[in-house]
Design a protein around this nucleic acid. Sequence first.
DNA 1: CCATTATAGTTTACATGTAAACTAACATGG
DNA 2: CCATGTTAGTTTACATGTAAACTATAATGG
Lengths: 148, 148
Amino acid sequence: MAIKSLAIPPSIGRQLNFTTGRMNALCMHMLKPHGLSLPQWVILSCLWREGNQTVGALSKLIGTGIPATSRLIDRMVTRGLVTRQRDNTDGRIGIVSATGKARELNHLANFYETINKALFVGFSVEEREQSFDLLRRMESNAKRALEQ
Amino acid sequence: MAIKSLAIPPSIGRQLNFTTGRMNALCMHMLKPHGLSLPQWVILSCLWREGNQTVGALSKLIGTGIPATSRLIDRMVTRGLVTRQRDNTDGRIGIVSATGKARELNHLANFYETINKALFVGFSVEEREQSFDLLRRMESNAKRALEQ
DNA sequence: CCATTATAGTTTACATGTAAACTAACATGG
DNA sequence: CCATGTTAGTTTACATGTAAACTATAATGG
């Protein structure tokens, strides 16, 4: 029943989860006053920048599967943030559009830059670039390992 | 109804989520044959290394809230991987212990090193250290921003 | 000693992720 | 033209995350 204290192993996976978790918590905290979750902001930011998109294209952008995206769009429709319509020439395709209510929030279009600034406090320009570089390389390493 | 192609913004938050997502997918894929999820492995790895722990201590280790940890322990009890018992001297505290069935999996205790190796393919020693350093600094920057 | 407060967990409600089954619509080859 | 296969989404089942309400136990102060 004696309890030993906890040592933290040098796991890059653990560090990635902790850093990403904190970052996401910060995003959620900053978006909450606007009534948006982070996934919802990602969808809207895409629609603001790029115009109407299909569910599949949005799914690739946010990096999660089509089912999760489809349900996320459902909730955003319910909240009046986006609309869905079937494509005229291909009835399988659903086109997602931001509503006027969502457009009132488009001062948040560059919200990610606020997060970049917050996370990169004390970072040199080289360190910022290296952060992207190292993370991209870890991502492609993981992707390659998963495909084998 | 015309659809523009998607540009990817230089968002460190997006990169963190994509890299972490790939890493977690790789972990889940490698743990699946052993019947473990990643959160379950994290719990077990802690119990193997450090012995019995309270729910609160485990919660801090895995970096998620006590409710999520409590429910995770529930499922692991159901699967026969851990047991729960009340502390004799303080009835509020629940002590979590790995079972014999879980001990059969403890060849996975250093599983995180496999992930480190996979993610760090092509990385110099300095780049590995810098990966930890940059991620830790982003984590503490996010934490500080959240506290203000 | 007892009322109040603090601590450790649990429960509930809900958003989100994955995987697999299902549906609807388009495309293709005989 | 129709059977078959492909593609785009939806639905369902379940694991996981957070937040808030609730419960049980311990600690503290009068």
